[in-house]
Amino acid sequence: MADDVPAVLFAATSANKLGSMDTGCWLEEMAAPYYILKKRGFEPTIASPAGGKIPLDPRSTQEGQLSATSKNFLKDNEAMDKLNNSVRTSEVDPDDFVALFVPGGHGIMVDGPKDMKPLVETFAKQGKLVSAVCHGPAAFTEAELDGQPIVKGKKVTSFSNSEEEKIGGTKAVPFLLEDRLKERGAHYHKGEDWSPFVVTDSKMITGQNPQVIPLTLLAIGTPMGAASP
């Protein structure tokens, strides 16, 4: 990697099970921002708590869910090598990156809050952009800055309770993400179910679901017309 190329850390889940349900990282939430950033001159590095191969939620690789971008990612040797040989988050040096992005998928509900806490806290302490989409903000729920939750007082969004209910996930998840963010003092906002919705608050960018990829905002520095209450 050239020294003058800004790098963004993608921190994805290592969990492939949520109870008896197969899960992992949602492919589109990895693939779309990966190419958006590369196109705009950023270099993505992919990491996970366990390192090595990142599991993909099998539902996200079904034909009906595969966008052209996701199909391209699966055939991209460089991208798949990064996905299958991810760096351990505990071995990452945040000084090497300009921003953090956490893709969703139910897997992040399992290992995100605890295992990514130190990483998220370091990025926040350094005043760098932290971004997440869908279930990705679960990685922010236990992180603190100056003894307070990093989401406290922040405007955020995430996969909503109503969306979780509609896919039958409310009994499977360890907690409802919308509720947990509110419990941690966040000012939670949401759009219509399954519609593009992004919230920006200072150095924190969150997207509600796969219909929007918040790293687009990071890459160009403007909200592209997405909601920012």
Rank of each mutant, 00 (worst) to 15 (best):
A219P: 05
D96C: 07
P55I: 06
E29N: 04
Q211G: 08
N161K: 15
A172V: 15
P137R: 04
L37Y: 10
E63P: 00
S48H: 03
K39L: 15
L215Y: 09
L177T: 11
D115W: 00
G105P: 02
L177Y: 01
A68P: 03
R59A: 13
D146K: 04
G127Y: 09
K182Y: 05
G191V: 13
H187E: 15
P6L: 10
R88S: 03
G107S: 02
P210A: 08
T89Q: 03
G225M: 10
W26K: 10
E43G: 11
E28Y: 09
F73K: 12
D146P: 01
P44K: 15
S131D: 05
V133H: 13
V212K: 06
K75L: 15
D3E: 14
G19E: 06
P118K: 11
L218S: 12
A219G: 14
V110S: 12
M80C: 00
G153H: 06
L66V: 10
M109E: 01
S60I: 07
E163W: 03
S228W: 08
D193R: 07
K152A: 09
W26F: 13
A132R: 11
L18N: 02
A132E: 07
A143S: 04
S131F: 03
A68H: 01
T222V: 14
P210T: 12
L217E: 10
E29Q: 10
I108W: 05
S67H: 00
N85K: 13
L218K: 12
K182G: 10
V5T: 13
G51D: 11
K17M: 13
R59N: 05
V130K: 02
H189C: 01
H189P: 03
N84K: 05
L129A: 08
K154S: 02
N161G: 15
S162P: 14
A132G: 12
V120K: 07
P196S: 01
A32C: 07
E121A: 09
E165A: 13
P196C: 01
G107F: 01
G41Y: 11
V198C: 11
G107W: 01
K152C: 04
A172W: 10
L27A: 04
Q62P: 06
L9Y: 01
P58H: 01
G225W: 12
T23D: 00
F175N: 12
L129W: 10
T89C: 02
E29H: 02
S228I: 14
P49V: 11
A132T: 11
E144Q: 04
E91K: 13
M80S: 07
Q65T: 04
E163A: 12
V120A: 08
I220H: 13
W194R: 08
D57Y: 00
M109H: 04
R88K: 12
S131E: 01
